[in-house]
């Protein structure tokens, strides 16, 4: 494989996937204890897609994420303690607690940003790519979205413009089979969304979204293409949401057999098996221990952090000077 990631790279991504999984499992526990506010959307089962899409990015590349963005935050290099602080509404969060888990943004890391509107970030990534094209820079804008968002007008409009103008952009679709509580077969005219790329003048690529290296490789190719000035790529990562839409989802619509099938393709287990051919068991366990410790420390710190003072509501409505990533 060209530019295949090293064992060290894979171990780093494995650790990130473990961090995401552990964070979300812990959030679910805390949600049940009433220690979180609002819905939390988890990507359990989709970690290879989320990390594989973001880990190959350079710091100056930008991402628009979704309501299900924890893996993107971690993959783009955000500080876990500040992500969690945002989720817990603490003043140390990336948005000083004003955004919450769906609206995490870190301008310094190019995570611009999470989004609670399905498909809302796609045209913003389009604009970022347009800005990069005007700059003549080698930066790339990546719109990450799900199969649900692929049915929004914003996605189609943005694909047309990106293809037309050959913008340095990647459309990364995490096809997790469900939009809200409804299976894709009831939402999409076609089972494979990457075929739509042809209609918008860009290549469409489909990968096993639970195969970290497959996602990573497809993403590297798409980024290279964008940096060469050859325009956008649509990458469809087939994956599966092992949990409900959000913590407020009552469930009951994902067939057990389907869940079992996908559980057998768990991206974390697969990545571990891959790494086991490269590293010894004690090295693997060290990675796992480090991930667990990182998560534990981040939760402890974030939950001990202070809330914003209510007076902060009156922070200025408008920017007085330009601020940009």
């Amino acid at each position: 494989m060209r530019n295949a990631p090293s064992a060290e790279d894979i171990a780093r991504m494995y650790r990130q996937m473990l961090v995401v999984r552990a964070v979300e499992e812990q959030l679910a526990v805390l949600h049940r204890q009433g220690k979180t506010r609002g819905p939390i959307h988890t990507c359990i089962g989709q970690e290879a897609a989320g990390i594989g899409a973001t880990a190959p990015l350079e710091r100056e590349d930008v991402v628009t994420s979704t309501h299900r963005g924890h893996a993107h935050f971690v993959g783009k290099g955000l500080d876990l303690r500040r992500v969690l602080a945002e989720i817990f509404g603490r003043v140390t969060g990336y948005c000083r607690g004003r955004g919450g888990h769906m609206l995490v943004a870190s301008a310094a890391d190019g995570l611009l940003g999470g989004n609670g509107i399905v498909g809302g970030g796609i045209p913003i990534a389009l604009g970022q790519a347009f800005g990069f094209q005007l700059d003549g820079s080698r930066r790339v804008a990546v719109a990450i979205f799900g199969d649900g968002a692929a049915q929004e007008g914003t996605c189609h409009e943005a694909m047309n413009v990106a293809g037309l103008w050959k913008l340095p952009m990647v459309f990364f679709c995490e096809h997790n089979l469900y939009g809200l509580t409804v299976h894709a077969r009831y939402q999409s005219s076609v089972p494979d969304l990457h075929v739509r790329a042809a209609g918008y003048g860009m290549p469409g690529v489909m990968v096993d979204g639970n195969d970290l290296l497959a996602v990573h490789g497809a993403m590297r190719d798409a980024l290279d293409r964008a940096r060469r000035g050859d325009g956008p790529t649509f990458v469809e990562a087939k994956t599966y949401r092992m949990t409900g839409f959000s913590t407020s989802d009552m469930g009951g619509y994902q067939p057990e057999e389907e869940m079992r099938e996908w559980a057998a393709r768990d991206p974390i287990a697969r990545t571990r098996a891959l790494l086991a051919t490269m590293l010894d068991e004690s090295s693997l366990e060290a990675v796992e221990r480090a991930a667990a410790e990182e998560v534990e420390a981040a939760f402890a710190q974030a939950m001990a952090d202070p809330f914003p003072d209510a007076a902060e509501l009156d922070a200025p409505e408008y920017a007085v000077a330009e601020a940009r990533p």
Binding site: T64, L112, G127, E157, V161
Partner: peptide, 12 residues
């Protein structure tokens, strides 16, 4: 898309 385009371009 054009409104998003303006937002994204302004952001960068």
């Amino acid at each position: 898309a054009m409104t998003g385009l303006a937002i994204g371009a302004a952001m960068v």
